[in-house]
Amino acid sequence: MHLISAAGASPSLVLQLVVSGVVLGSFYALLGMSVSVIYSTTKVFHFAHAFVYTAAAYVALGTASVLGVPIVLAIVIGLIAAVVLGVTIELVVYRSMRRSGASSLGIFLASLGISIAGPNLIQIIFGPDGRNLPVGNPALYTVGTVTFTTWDIVTVVVSWALIGGVLAMRRSRWGLASIAVSANRELSAAVGISPQKIYVYAFAVGSLLIGSAAILFTLNQAATPNMGLQPVLFGFIATFLAGVGNQKTAPLAGFVLGMVVSLSGIWLSQTFQTAVIFGLLFVALIVRPQGIFRKAAV
């Protein structure tokens, strides 16, 4: 184990890391968007998002490899499962807790309970070992000294397409209504917007995004029962770095996170990824508590 990877970064290494940074950053941007859609609208610290992520991957690979469903269909089923699960958690757990006057800490703790029970249930069913989505190996492309795969391209394209879609939807009726609810729940209710419906909508969209992220991840790597924890943490970090409630900049913060993590590979080994992100969060909280892209609060 080396603390410092190969000293003296060559230009080709840096270029490769920039390309990986774009891929990783796009993935984190998607995570940030997904968490932000839910958090900025509902203010629920939806930690069970980690379970939704895991569930999407396992439903897809379960239907594909156990039931033998064609892979594209299996992925669609996985995404549907993510949306259904996310919305169910909102309807069955959060909504009833909100009605009985639970604090946001209380709702978070319930969410934490789901995030621990769910993946363990998956482990009991599928076992603790990694499982792959049966998609075969991607094509490898080499441009100069930089290499990347089909899945890298898919990750970048799909992530930004989804993010663009969500941002474009902000102009729609539903989008405007969610912005209204996130700004002032009571006042929105007074002008005839149903916050309950908007919450369900936010959970549906957020779950679709996190499910897509899970599928993108399993194209490249094996799914494990605990796979959801780290991405959801990164999604939250992006959301908070962007400034709470700032949906537009959350993907940008995610992208920066991915870039920083990847480029830190010039000096640090991969195992320090989380440490780098933690450091970034720590410093950002001290120097820019209002969010990295926000002007100082007036």
């Binding site: 703790l109 309970g113 029970a117 363990n120």
Partner: peptide
């Protein structure tokens, strides 16, 4: 061998149920 996974399911669910019905 699956004890730790079952334990996670049990205390996770307990957390949800307690917060929901007896905070």
């Amino acid at each position: 061998a699956e004890a730790s996974a079952w334990r996670g399911v049990i205390y996770g669910l307990a957390l949800v149920l307690v917060m929901r019905y007896r905070p």
